[in-house]
Lab assay of single mutants.
Amino acid sequence: MASQGTKRSYEQMETDGERQNATEIRASVGKMIGGIGRFYIQMCTELKLSDYEGRLIQNSLTIERMVLSAFDERRNKYLEEHPSAGKDPKKTGGPIYRRVNGKWMRELILYDKEEIRRIWRQANNGDDATAGLTHMMIWHSNLNDATYQRTRALVRTGMDPRMCSLMQGSTLPRRSGAAGAAVKGVGTMVMELVRMIKRGINDRNFWRGENGRKTRIAYERMCNILKGKFQTAAQKAMMDQVRESRNPGNAEFEDLTFLARSALILRGSVAHKSCLPACVYGPAVASGYDFEREGYSLVGIDPFRLLQNSQVYSLIRPNENPAHKSQLVWMACHSAAFEDLRVLSFIKGTKVLPRGKLSTRGVQIASNENMETMESSTLELRSRYWAIRTRSGGNTNQQRASAGQISIQPTFSVQRNLPFDRTTIMAAFNGNTEGRTSDMRTEIIRMMESARPEDVSFQGRGVFELSDEKAASPIVPSFDMSNEGSYFFGDNAEEYDN
């Protein structure tokens, strides 16, 4: 783990906690998980779902989305002020799938948001429990990260689609708070800032007046979040320049895209947490497990152990491969979309394939898809080993990566060399080191050039047997250095459309 220093740990961010010791953190995270579980059980009762239907990941996603929508204050306010045809701002819903006479049927349900809020609060001892809501947002974000390569979004903001390893959390809503900021990748933060800068260039009043003052505060806050992700002084200094700019424009845009590229080699610290679907927490609570009393951590053995003992089902389209669908969801559960496939294969105990080789589309089923041909199958979400999630980018030494994705962002704290394609990355730096950030740029390029592919990161860190909950005997895996390590390699994943 990167030293926490003055930073709060993510469990504290996750639970809005002030400084807590490890036991208190485990208890408050457990409380959050228990609340999600209780809410899910109650919703299944309301909807009269069978046990099997309640364990269907598509039903879980609909129920999670309903509660997130019920608590989305800004959108609710907007919907009330701008009524649109056929949208009731006070209601929320989605597809629920039921097994009827041996076939899967889709039923569109509609609930009062007020009623959903009441059920959620009741499951969370009367609190709004925003930490639990954020947790579900991060699960949705991790699922998107594993399912889609955001080529269009990258290109629109002047970045290269091969930089997708920097895009963790790119679909997280803005209201996801400190826990959300911690899991956002460098590219995601750059993209958010670039969008602001572009608006400022096109709209003279963007930075002016009372609204402009708020915009400015948001801009500086985002700059500080991004600065905190960088691990070298030169990158941090460049972020200070971007933040202090009187009138952010093209120079800042250039600096930010430069920094994003540099992060492929001088990786930023991005938190990883295993956020599971509500249909995993519900049955665990129903079986009598007391998360608050037992304590829970999002970055240790607990999620692995929970998945070892969970039964989750998914709808499967006619030509999809259930094992591939399982891999997709497994990666999402562990926030591992940008991790090295060699490491993932070792931990999972079966070969993890790149996205383009998977015969599976996303987990969600569109409303126009034919239910007649839908089957369902068990998702295999178990693992051979477990490993500690990392909050750091690993040290800054790398190795060759593949054509589709030119770097990785480690999820697990496991000893290995970190793949990246130096030639491709360095070719993108057209040696432009003039301007006010020239000395920093020169320094950053120097550090990137001296990074050695064969150097090892996370020295001495290994994986653990599932029986080793105290992480007492690390097993340090050895990897084939020459092997392909990137998930979005030469990829044809669908595009994420909101």
Score class of each variant (00 low, 15 high):
Asp340Gly: 09
Thr23Asp: 02
Leu307Asp: 02
Ser392Val: 10
Gln4Met: 11
Gly268Thr: 06
Asn142Gln: 14
Ser50Trp: 00
Ile197Ala: 04
Ala2Lys: 03
Arg99Pro: 06
Asp497Met: 13
Arg117Glu: 00
Ser245Phe: 04
Arg441Phe: 04
Ser50Arg: 07
Arg446Phe: 13
Thr360Glu: 01
Arg8Gly: 08
Gly34Lys: 12
Asn492Thr: 13
Arg446Tyr: 09
Phe412Thr: 01
Glu18Ser: 08
Thr411Tyr: 05
Leu49Tyr: 02
Thr151Ile: 09
Glu320Tyr: 06
Ala471Trp: 06
Ile445Val: 15
Ile444Pro: 13
Glu244Phe: 01
Val456Ala: 14
Ala178Tyr: 03
Leu166Trp: 01
Ile316Asn: 09
Cys333Trp: 04
Arg99Leu: 06
Glu469Thr: 13
Glu454Tyr: 09
Ala403Asn: 15
Gln168Trp: 05
Leu306Gln: 15
Asp51Thr: 12
Val476Glu: 11
Glu18Ala: 15
Ala22Phe: 04
Asp340Ala: 07
Glu81Ala: 00
Lys31Thr: 13
Leu79Tyr: 02
Ile365Gly: 09
Gly393Trp: 10
Cys223Pro: 04
Gly30Arg: 09
Lys351Glu: 08
Glu369Gly: 10
Glu465Ala: 09
Asn498Val: 12
Asp112Trp: 11
Pro173Ser: 15
His324Tyr: 10
Arg8Tyr: 01
Ala131Tyr: 10
Arg162Cys: 13
Ile41Ala: 09
Asn321Pro: 00
Met238Pro: 01
Ala218Glu: 08
Ile63Gln: 03
Ser314Val: 13
Ser438His: 07
Lys87Gly: 01
Ser9Phe: 04
Met191Gly: 05
Met374Asp: 05
Ile217Ala: 14
Met159His: 02
Glu369Ala: 10
Asp468Lys: 06
Gly228Thr: 15
Asp340Gln: 06
Gly249Trp: 10
Ala260His: 01
Ala323Phe: 12
Val285Glu: 14
Leu381Ser: 09
Pro83Tyr: 06
Ser376Thr: 08
Pro173Glu: 09
Tyr496Ser: 05
Arg216Thr: 10
Gly404Asp: 10
Thr157Gln: 13
Gly460Ala: 08
Val476Ile: 03
Pro89Glu: 02
Leu379Thr: 12
Phe338His: 13
Ala286Ile: 14
Tyr219Glu: 04
Asn432Leu: 08
Gly431Glu: 07
